[in-house]
Amino acid sequence: MQVPAPFEYERATSVDQAIGLLDRLGDTARLIAGGHSLLPMMKLRLANFEYLIDINDLAGELGHITVEPGQIRIGALTRHRELLESAVLAETFPIFADAERVIADPVVRNRGTIGGSLCQADPSEDLSAVCTTLGASCVIQGAGGRRVVTMEEFHRGPYETAVGDAEMLIEVRFPVRPYGSSAYEKVERRAGDWAVVSAGAAVWLADSASTDTDTDTGAAGGAGAIGGARPVIAGARVGLAAVGPNTTGLPEISRALRGLPPSEELYERAGTIAAASCEPVTDRRGSADYKRHLAKELTVRALRRSVARAQQARTNGGTHSSTGNGAGHRTGHGNGHPQGD
């Protein structure tokens, strides 16, 4: 029988109180949210704590998806299922629904949280790759106040984050830019498994002043060629999971794509950079060579789909990536299911 070693259970009543407890108990205590990473590790004695502080009652403070001008803020206690079902994320960052559909299984997604996923810092974890791809920043709160760190600063290595013993991750912030979209591609051995390799892409386009009449070779069939002008990539980010010590962002790809019109050749070039930049190891999930192949191919597919989506959204004339529909829009546990935690 696998059970965690004995510990004292405390239930947090507010973020401040939880931080107070962490401050007092030091590294003998750990926060527990969904528990679907921590409890298995404690059962296996890979982690042992004298105190667990249950933060599931803090959904009022930490369970939210908030749209503001220029950014979306997601509370650390927002659950996978809420991310999957969020209409505003589906519109602004479709990468979330792509990834959430293949993270664990629906029952686990009812419990697991974005904060827990990031704090677990597993190099194969998909939501971390999503946050890396989108250039997210993490808000960490401690007794002395709040600080904001980038994803690169947040993940210090496998299972290691910038969150101190007396601190907690309270929010993840995502910058929103116009005329953009995103996508996620994952290869897994079976439903709900960790990735063999995953790749996320986010692109932001801009209308080019060029009157170049070449046919757009992008996968969207030229949907973005409005008024004869070919769009160019104003910005692009690619993030990979399961091919290195952390979910990795690849700035070299961002540099290679910037300012150029999207094309299959460009995606190929980005894929080649991805394959060359990652550090996969041979394990039960596949050989290093196979994973490099996947890193390239999935990068190509994710970029292709991101560009197609951005152009499609523009063609549809939707409010894609617009945050002008009012600050403070909240979707908490808004799916009609009572969830008192």
Binding site: Y9, D54, N110
Partner: peptide
């Protein structure tokens, strides 16, 4: 015991959860 097989699924506040990966204490009040 590792939240993979799902035979332990029960509802917590109307939603299916894997009860091998939820502490009894966490279910308090639910």
């Amino acid at each position: 015991d590792t939240s993979n097989c799902g035979t332990c699924v029960v509802w917590m506040d109307g939603e299916p959860v894997k009860s091998c990966t939820v502490l009894a204490a966490m279910a308090g009040g639910h």
